[in-house]
Design a protein around this nucleic acid. Structure first.
Lengths: 224, 224
DNA sequence: AGAATATCGAGAAATAAATCTCGAAACCAG
DNA sequence: CTGGTTTCGAGATTTATTTCTCGATATTCT
């Protein structure tokens, strides 16, 4: 049985580092700076310069020796590479718990993403919306997605509803899902599913803690 | 200049997959199942069986041919490997916005983590606490961390306060930080800093979208 | 009891990623 | 105008990770 393992594009880690570069570079641009060298970036980011240079090569931009990169071009190149140059409206499905957390998150703007509406099984529980965003019943998702030309959804429903809701999203025309549920979704190959790694990150953190012997278990007598 | 690149332990990806296994396995255990084979897990998880077998080898557990793994031992082995077998109390610093929502997130329990208190620059804004958790001034963090034997903190303050707050955490005795801010923190080597990768994941998602030509930009006339 | 089959475990091969090395190009100083 | 210095860019090397192959072992069926 040949299970396709969702080939993880080229240089996953490099792509993941780009947003950090972008943040710094945007700041420099705002300060009126015009050029930046990878060696300078390396100091600010505390990363080896060679890593940064290789990462930037990926975006196709080219610098000039002894001068560095033109900041404006560099920022534009990264933004275009990531597709963060034009804003994408997205839906968020499941507004309780972690979904609400994401509605409150204001960091999507820098990534060219705007959460425009929430959806829930019981929208009547949120008559005034959540965090300033309107909440609709999931039944209306297809209609609204078509009308608003929305192709991306953030999935934050309980694990038990994950597959069922994902199916609804796909029939509603959603082409990419940022999935915060734990089960692995079964969807057509042409739908992009990006698993959120919050719990995975916790696993790495826990493991590193254990490796250093910092068990730090909750002990007796630790009442506030 | 030799910048240490925070060596990412052995088999990062394997560690990241373990929580998914654990979720499934716990469910099977609850259903009364006693044994499970990697081939069966592979079907459920839609992953190649060889991947799962190698990942499990990491935990040190051993299965028996033709039978599979003893579910109870397997779950226990993964939990111990990740350090999720005993609950760790943690603090959350910065209770507005995303921090507030994380306080409401109930998914930490499965990872052996319990957020017991919040801290904020202006705790007086939250007299009754937030989401059932008390909120203290950051000045009291050291005292409480000592008394409650707490070594882990979740950092969800605004980016501008990130470094300063992190320094406070370290002097307060915190040894591990799950960092949701964007700047790169400068801390002693013996403090574990785990960057939350929300934005990095968005980068990967955006990149995959762009590769498939799904620009899906916000177009005119998409009012709700 | 003996053959067939499913499954594990360990080492080897293949693949991908990170890092190093060196030649070339641009600025600066004299 | 020439030599020194900084920085880029491309290929090569090293390292890490994933995937494959094969022998061993326990169950099941005849």
């Amino acid at each position: 049985m040949a299970i396709v393992t969702a080939k993880a594009g080229p240089k996953l880690q490099s792509v993941q580092r780009l947003p950090a570069y972008l943040g710094i570079l945007r700041g420099m641009l705002a300060e009126g700076r015009e050029f930046v060298s990878t060696s300078h970036l390396a100091e600010v980011l505390k990363l080896p310069a060679i890593v940064i240079r290789k990462d930037l090569q990926m975006t196709g931009i080219t610098g000039t020796p002894r001068v560095g990169f033109d900041l404006r071009f560099l920022v534009a190149a990264i933004e275009q590479f990531l597709g963060w140059n034009n804003t994408k409206d997205v839906f968020l499905v499941g507004v309780r718990g972690f979904g609400e957390a994401l509605l409150a998150f204001d960091g999507f703007g820098t990534a060219g993403m705007d959460v425009v509406a929430g959806f829930d099984r019981q929208p009547e529980l949120f008559p005034g919306g959540v965090r300033g965003k309107p909440v609709f019943p999931i039944a209306r998702l297809g209609e609204l997605a078509r009308r608003m030309h929305i192709a991306i959804a953030i999935l934050t429903v309980p694990d038990t509803d994950a597959q069922e809701t994902a199916d609804v999203l796909v029939t509603a025309g959603i082409r990419a899902i940022w999935d915060f549920t734990t089960p692995r979704l079964c969807l057509p190959d042409d739908v992009i599913v990006q698993k959120a790694g919050l719990i995975s990150e916790l696993a790495v953190l826990s493991k590193r803690l254990r490796e250093r012997g910092l068990t730090a278990t909750a002990e007796e007598g630790n009442s506030i």
